[in-house]
Simulated scan of single mutants.
Amino acid sequence: MLYRYSMKLKQTGQVTIDTVAASCGLSRTTVSAVLRGDAGKYRIAEGTAEKVRAAAEALGWKANYFARSLNSKRTGTIGVLFPDVFERFMGETVRGIEEALDQVDCRMLLSTSRFDADEELRAVEAFSWRGVDGLLIAPYAPFSGERSRAAELVAAIGRTPCVVIDRAPDGLDPVAEGYGFIVQADRDASRAATILLAQGNAQDPYHKLRNTRVGFLGFDLAASSLRERRAGYREAAAELGFPPREILLRERNPDSADMETAVVLADAADDRPGAWFVSTEGLALKLAAILEARGRRLGADVRIGRFGSDPAWLPTGLLGLRQPHRQLGRRSTELLFELIEGGPAVGTIILPVDHAPAEPVPGRRNH
């Protein structure tokens, strides 16, 4: 009989706490406490709690998060917004977010702006309409000189607790807006990597190629992360006494010829760089392919360093900066929970970046 009743209720969607209470002969208050996980708090006997859970399972009861949100003023969801998810940075950061969410009864809604400011605003507004408890955002950054949409983003976020991660576009001051702000130590890491590429050391695989000029390759973005990486590179160049040589791209299309044209021109010059520091992993791999096509041997004729590190199964021969992606995801989520609970913004949190100059492993890119 209970099975038939359960199947009927599953089909009609009528299983409620009252239904469970009636099926096991207990009060609604007792059943509600057990199903919320508060049996111990209210000293409900374990046998009684097991009876409630068994009845709920047999009847097919599911938590009504909409009703719960009306009572608690929380939906148990956060919105997570990235420009895209094609690079390892995004995927590893999401893993860190999930590790933090696993500790609480909370889930995320994930969206991407696809490097489009209008789409970013639509996503934030959609999160707001769905009543998310907070937002984690790696904001879209326009190219330098383009119109800033930061004020519109702030307006769309409104009073929703928010943590900005990895970068802030020009015109957005996360701390002044009361947001959390977590980044990695871009400037220090960029400076250290540039010096290592130029000078090497006894432990580094590039120590035989010393005192060389280092070029910089990155996107020409109006964002704090790119600005800090360029600043670190320029500090190292000034310290070592070589003139900065920068290639700043203004086209995200991977099939665009602008990067190859600029790299070939720089590599053909008499004062061509003997090493390159690259702001992103994807650009570094493309740079390696362009230089190899010109007959340059990685580690012998030219060396390349970049943010990011090799997976164990795919050695590239590139100097890597091991980024704290998962830590970034975990810490930003923990900070968001603090803001949701009414805690104060704590200023900018900077996570360290470790350079990982592992010995090149023989492979396609090491000759």
Rank of each mutant, 00 (worst) to 15 (best):
R53N: 12
E98R: 08
D204P: 01
Y42I: 04
F181L: 05
L221P: 11
D204C: 15
K208R: 14
A100R: 05
A67H: 02
D255H: 15
V361S: 03
V164A: 03
I195V: 09
A168P: 13
R296F: 13
I44R: 00
E334W: 06
P243R: 11
V214H: 06
E228G: 01
S309N: 10
G347D: 05
T333K: 03
A288F: 04
A193F: 07
R234N: 01
R95N: 09
L121V: 05
A312M: 12
D166C: 07
I17M: 01
E292K: 11
A192S: 14
E92C: 05
S27E: 01
S148H: 09
G134L: 08
V15C: 12
R4C: 09
E125S: 10
L248E: 03
W61F: 15
Q184W: 00
R167Q: 10
F181R: 11
F181Q: 09
A231L: 09
G200K: 03
R191H: 13
P324K: 07
R252L: 15
F216K: 02
Y179R: 01
R107G: 06
I247H: 13
R191E: 14
F89I: 07
G305H: 07
Y206F: 14
A45C: 04
F277V: 14
E260H: 07
W61R: 08
F89Y: 11
I350G: 00
G282N: 07
A45T: 02
S332P: 04
K62H: 06
E146L: 07
L265M: 15
R326E: 14
V34E: 01
T348S: 04
V94W: 00
Q327K: 05
D258F: 10
R114I: 01
R4P: 02
F115T: 02
N211M: 11
E281R: 05
H207A: 13
D301W: 00
E120S: 02
W129Y: 06
G47P: 03
A202G: 09
D118S: 13
R147Y: 00
L283K: 02
L59T: 08
G47C: 06
A168H: 01
D186F: 04
V104T: 00
I44H: 03
G180K: 06
G79Y: 13
I44Q: 00
V164G: 04
D220G: 11
Y65A: 13
T348G: 00
G91A: 12
G79I: 07
R294Y: 12
Q323A: 07
M1N: 10
G241A: 14
T194P: 01
L35V: 04
A126V: 04
V124N: 02
A202W: 11
N366D: 02
A126Y: 01
I165F: 10
D220L: 04
A54H: 13
D255P: 07
S148T: 05
V31W: 03
Q203E: 14
R245I: 10
P174Q: 06
E98Q: 12
A100D: 05
